[in-house]
Amino acid sequence: MSEHVLITGGAGFIGTRLSARFASDGHAVTVLDALIPQVHGEDPETTSPLLRSLDGVAEVIVGTVTSKEDLRRALRDATIVIHLAAETGTGQSMYEIDRYVDANVGGTAKLLDILTNEEHSVRRVVIASSRSIYGEGAYETTDGRRVYPEHRSDADMAAGDFEVHVPGEGELRLIPTDETALVHPSSVYGITKQMQESLIMTVAPTIGVEPVSVRYQNVYGPGQSLKNPYTGILSIFSTLIRQGKDINIFEDGEESRDFVYIDDVVEATYLAATAPAAAGGIFNVGSGVATSVNDVVAALFAAYGTEVPTRISGNYRLGDIRHNVADTSALREILGFTPAVAFEDGVKRFAEWVLTEPVEADGYERSLKEMAERKLLK
């Protein structure tokens, strides 16, 4: 059956790829995007390849989810909504609190308010949630019990102790975090993603709309912004390498994340939007593999065939987690999908694309200064 898909935030890294995926299967696609300069530059028509990639793929409405008028225009005839629109910087969220809550929580509330009180044709809403809602994920004690450590303290990290701890327990072992895990975000961004998901999963069933949540891990790949300092370390480190600048590795470099390639994210989201079995479900979207920052640096050096000086500084950011790796069993067992791109292969594809892009100034150093001034970077 042909659908009419609305993708909020659809002119971004994930949204443009997802738009192309739906269009290739004959579905109509509408994109609502505010085209913020942090992502698209000051003149998106000329500075945003992502926006240009939507030509002939989707109807683009320039607008914001914080405007009911814009949302009403975009929702016209939509049968599926994929709600990607959000401010996405974990560190930035700790000092631009109002903006993050307004866009992420307020925008979701306005979307649901329209669906609840006005006529529409939407039958399913997919919310792009995040691994950040878990805070520190799942660990196992020496006697095999599952625990969820609280956020790390400033005092411990200042003393060079970056590991997580549970009072009365010894050494903890990281295990994959599944969808039943404790939700206790450690950043404003994580709190807003938790609220987005909770709003969608609670309200949608009461109005006859199927809710689905996809909890993205650390998404990367070609098309990712190389200028936005809140995009992720693969882009940040790639730019530093190409500029010949030193890389400052925070903490001890052994902190880890679950990096998932863009093609796998798009396919998982497509299934979440279209598969009957997905209705009402919550799905981790990740690779299921934890990769340390030190391993990321080594993989990038290998992919680019060059190295720059690195320094393990012991710097740390308040609100950051130590480790996270997703349990992707639900994605496999319910939707029949297993992410296919290994990190080593994905980094090579990413680096090949990066080398075709111009080396541009980024805002990384400015972002660090902003955090340090607010005592969030130590």
Rank of each mutant, 00 (worst) to 15 (best):
M1D: 14
H4A: 10
I7S: 05
G9T: 06
G10P: 03
I14M: 05
R17N: 14
A23R: 15
D25P: 01
H27F: 11
V31H: 13
D33P: 08
P37E: 04
Q38R: 09
E42L: 07
E42F: 02
P44Y: 06
E45V: 06
T47S: 15
T47R: 08
P49G: 15
P49Y: 15
R52D: 15
S53A: 15
E59F: 01
V62Y: 14
T66I: 10
E69A: 11
D70S: 13
R72Q: 11
A74Q: 06
L75V: 03
D77F: 11
A78Q: 08
H83W: 03
A85E: 05
A86M: 07
G91M: 10
G91R: 10
Y95G: 03
E96L: 04
E96T: 08
D102I: 01
D102N: 11
G107F: 03
A109P: 01
K110L: 10
L112A: 01
I114H: 00
T116V: 03
R124Q: 04
R124N: 05
S130D: 06
S130F: 03
R131A: 13
E136I: 02
E136D: 07
A138S: 13
A138G: 02
R146I: 15
M157A: 13
F162W: 10
E163G: 12
V164K: 01
H165V: 00
P176A: 04
D178V: 00
E179M: 04
E179K: 06
P185I: 04
S186V: 15
Y189G: 03
Y189M: 06
I191K: 14
Q196V: 07
E197W: 07
E197M: 10
L199A: 13
M201L: 14
V203D: 09
A204P: 04
A204D: 10
A204Q: 07
T206I: 02
I207R: 04
G208H: 04
V209Q: 05
V214E: 04
V214H: 06
Y216F: 14
Q217R: 12
V219L: 05
P229L: 05
S235N: 09
L240V: 02
I241S: 01
K245D: 08
I247A: 03
I249R: 01
G253F: 02
S256G: 11
R257C: 08
Y261C: 03
D263C: 11
D264W: 04
E267L: 11
T269W: 10
Y270G: 09
L271H: 04
T274H: 06
T274K: 02
T274L: 12
A275M: 12
A278M: 12
A278F: 10
G280C: 08
G281S: 10
F283Y: 15
G286L: 05
G288I: 00
V293I: 11
L300T: 04
Y304M: 05
T306I: 02
G314V: 01
Y316Q: 06
L318Q: 14
L318I: 15
D320M: 11
I321C: 06
T328G: 00
S329T: 13
A330K: 15
R332P: 00
R332Q: 13
I334F: 00
P339L: 08
F343V: 03
E344I: 01
E344L: 02
G346N: 05
V347D: 03
K348S: 10
E352D: 14
E352H: 08
W353H: 12
W353S: 09
L355I: 06
V359L: 11
E373M: 12
E373S: 14
L376D: 07
L377H: 12
L377C: 03
